[in-house]
Amino acid sequence: WKWALGGVALVAVIGVTAGVTVSVVDNDKSDGRGNSAPTGATQPSGDSTSDIASANDTGPVAIITEDPTCAAQDPILQTLANKHRNAGWDKRDAAKPASEWTPAVRAQFEEAGKATRAAADQMVPLAKLTPHRVMRELYEQFIVYARAYADSIPTYTAPDDNLALMSIGTSSAISYICGAIGNGSAAARSPLVPPLSAPVRVAPVGDPADPQRFLDKPNPVCGDWRAAMDQFGRDIVEWNKTDPAIPASQWTPEVKALNESIAPVMSEYASRLQELGERSGNPVLRDFADLAALYRRAYVAAIPTYLPADHDLTTASTRSAGLVGTACDAVDS
């Protein structure tokens, strides 16, 4: 099961090799990024004693229509991408362990590791600034997995590449959430998506400067999560061949029929992810599941009046779901 990171401007720049495997292929050809001010999901009440803006966000995950961190994350990730590319890390052989590296390859990985760690450190203030709990959790997971990958380089083995894929997945989810903010699709489609119920519990607020992995041991839903993603990937093969740059007003009858037929499949997939998130017993995993489900439903709601900007919604969903699968791989490997 794979995510198609190739063809997406941000992810391609971040330096994923053409052969890197990631989760479900999802027609990812959009490239928007948002530069916005806060509101969106559940607004925190603003605990003046805390420097974490989302500390009081205990409500349901929702489509994020504004976030003050979107402008800041973009240059951080662009710089990281450029450094990875300049080091040649985007063409790395992820299967070869450090014990088999030439001096040139070792230098390549070490340079990429330094850039990755620097980006993680720069994300800490953004994790504190965002008013949305789920965005903070995405930033925190980028930070912890990026640092873990950098730490793995001296004794790197193939399974450690899952750490790199996690940093890519989380940063990509952030980017496409911000893309949907910046191009207006999040605000346009969020009123069409029924709100979720507030969770019974949320993960305790920790220190964004020293976050912990949300999966540090195998979770019972990992197998079912992979199976759901595999099935969804098979279900959308034909839809995946359509051009996301063409608006609904210009669809042929065949493309229109295909999109209408895929809508219930996507809705069922969203419900399945939500159910697995709830069953996981892991509040961060549940938040990521809810995030993936909501953005998938937002795309479904957009289908009758689809515009190219709406593709950031489905890509944000794919990245959010995919990072859970990669986190499962990281603990299982």
Rank of each mutant, 00 (worst) to 15 (best):
V284H: 09
L313P: 04
S197T: 13
V324I: 13
D332M: 08
S54V: 04
P68E: 14
S54D: 12
A330C: 12
A263K: 10
S190D: 08
G46P: 06
S30V: 14
A18K: 03
A53N: 10
A164R: 12
G34V: 14
L276W: 07
E275K: 06
A302G: 15
R106S: 14
Q274E: 08
E100Q: 14
G281S: 03
P308F: 01
W101K: 08
S99A: 15
G32R: 06
K241Q: 12
P38R: 03
G281D: 08
A301L: 08
L138P: 01
A186M: 10
A98S: 15
N259P: 00
V13Q: 06
F232I: 00
A4C: 01
V221P: 05
R136V: 02
L138H: 09
E238C: 00
S175H: 15
A71C: 07
A104P: 04
L215H: 08
E66N: 15
I52N: 13
G182C: 12
M135E: 12
L129W: 04
V200C: 03
R297L: 10
F142H: 11
D312F: 04
E100H: 09
N259W: 08
A37C: 07
N82W: 02
R286A: 15
D26S: 00
L192A: 15
A298I: 10
N162C: 03
Y156E: 09
W3H: 04
P195R: 09
I63M: 10
A4Q: 06
P103W: 02
A115V: 15
R286G: 12
E254G: 03
Q122N: 13
D216K: 11
S23D: 05
K91A: 07
D216N: 10
T155W: 08
Y299P: 02
V20E: 11
S54A: 15
A98Y: 15
A248L: 11
T58W: 02
K91E: 05
A104Y: 02
V221D: 04
D93P: 02
V8I: 08
G206I: 15
A180L: 04
T157L: 01
I174P: 01
G7Q: 06
S197R: 07
V202W: 11
M229K: 06
K241D: 10
G182S: 14
S320I: 02
R133D: 11
F214Y: 12
S185R: 13
L196I: 11
L323V: 10
P131F: 00
K29Q: 06
A158G: 02
P253G: 09
M123H: 06
R226C: 09
F214C: 03
E278N: 09
S172P: 02
M166A: 13
S317I: 06
N56Q: 11
K241G: 10
A53G: 06
E278L: 09
L126T: 13
L126N: 07
W225Q: 01
T318V: 04
S317L: 03
A107Y: 03
L215P: 07
I63C: 05
A187I: 11
T305K: 09
R226E: 15
R117F: 09
D90P: 00
R319P: 10
R296E: 04
A146C: 12
L291T: 10
P159G: 09
R297D: 09
R234H: 03
V324S: 01
D151R: 03
S30I: 12
V200M: 12
A18N: 01
S175G: 15
Y306D: 14
A263N: 02
D31C: 03
R297K: 11
A180P: 04
D57G: 11
A309Q: 08
P283Y: 13
D121T: 07
V25W: 04
